[in-house]
């Protein structure tokens, strides 16, 4: 039986909403649970500090939860928005928006849990500087949320993109690739940024006088960890805004979908790897602050090498978009 365009668009937007909220709940739930676990551990060690510990736990959990709230917003919009439907591209754009936000929330939710959990243990060690520890945790967690925010931006752009005058055949794959590129690449960056943020909070608890240097190297390490998500965003923008000529071939859409998948998957590993490097560098700047110069340099060299595979993935994506 034949389906009309409106039916297919409804299938895509409801399916996209389900995938968006389902995937989007994974990371935040794990991050919030990790925070709660460490908070309990902290409470068992110092029950008299329960007020500060529980307050910090709730603040940290609220930030980790925000990734899932972004996914909820996009899912609700996908269910109730019902945009004007002119061609099949709307279905592809709405499905891609759901995939983008769903995958994009995993890393940020999980990553934000690390600083939020470490701050509870840090307060047990240094109750006198709990304000500074909270500040550091807030900075670290906020940076972890940026990949989820990139994913939300791309999801909203996909939902409100004007698809009236675009060619249906290769563009459906370009829109799907745009969603997958940012969504998947955000997983690694969010997780990696969280590793750096967590070791920063516990490092400051160990050596409070290193606050400035530890926060600086944490931010540098997190910034490098975010670059795979930024590559993903770049490929998404190219896929969304480049005009593709109408074609009947199946090779052209597969190249565009392949470009999105390539950059998306390719961003996961370097994001996590950069996070591992930053985690150890931050931890050891706190323990051995005299070595902070050499540690920063070695961290950046190590991250640059780890980044190379994300750059290969970006090159292959650009070749798939522009050359073949």
């Amino acid at each position: 039986m034949p389906f009309d365009i409106q039916t297919i668009v409804s299938i895509a937007s409801y399916g996209g909403a389900g995938v968006c909220m389902g995937l989007g709940a994974i990371g935040a739930a794990m991050g919030v649970g990790y925070t709660g676990g460490l908070a309990n551990q902290a409470l068992s060690q110092k029950p008299e500090a329960s007020g500060t510990i529980v307050k910090n736990m709730l603040i940290g959990q609220a930030i980790a939860e925000s990734a899932a709230i972004f996914a909820l917003v996009i899912a609700v919009l996908l269910i109730y928005l019902s945009p004007p439907v002119t061609n099949l591209l709307t279905a592809s754009a709405l499905g891609a928006a759901g995939l983008c936000m769903g995958f994009g929330a995993i890393g940020s939710g999980l990553g934000s849990g690390f600083p939020a959990g470490e701050v509870c243990l840090a307060i047990v060690r240094q109750p006198a500087i709990s304000g500074r520890l909270t500040t550091n945790m807030l900075i670290g967690s906020a940076v972890c949320q940026t990949p989820a925010i990139f994913a939300m931006v791309v999801a909203l752009m996909l939902m409100f993109l004007d698809v009236n005058n675009l060619s249906v055949n290769p563009t459906w794959a370009a829109l799907l690739g745009a969603g997958l590129s940012t969504g998947l690449a955000a997983i690694g960056s969010g997780f990696g940024g969280g590793l750096a943020g967590g070791s920063s909070v516990s490092g400051i608890a160990r050596q409070p006088e290193t606050f400035g240097k530890v926060t600086t190297i944490m931010l540098v390490g997190q910034a490098v960890s975010q670059t795979p998500a930024i590559f993903g965003l770049l490929i998404s923008f190219i896929l969304m805004f480049k005009i593709f000529p109408e074609t009947t071939s199946i090779a052209a859409p597969m190249a565009l979908l392949g470009a999105g998948l390539c950059m998306g998957f390719g961003g996961i590993g370097p994001g996590v790897g950069n996070g591992f490097t930053a985690q150890s560098a931050v931890k050891w700047v706190a323990r051995n602050v005299e070595a902070s110069g050499i540690l920063t340099r070695v961290m950046l060299v190590g991250q640059a090498v780890s980044q190379s595979t994300a750059i290969y993935a970006m090159v292959v994506s650009l070749v798939l978009i522009f050359v073949v």
């Binding site: 998957f265 390719g266 996590v272 790897g273 591992f276 060299v301 190590g302 991250q303 780890s306 994300a310």
Partner: peptide, 17 residues
């Protein structure tokens, strides 16, 4: 290229750490 980039990225980052 996409899936193949995951492993080296994580592994090299671990070495760097």
């Amino acid at each position: 290229m996409g899936l193949g980039a995951i492993g080296p990225g994580v592994g090299e980052g671990f070495v760097g750490g």
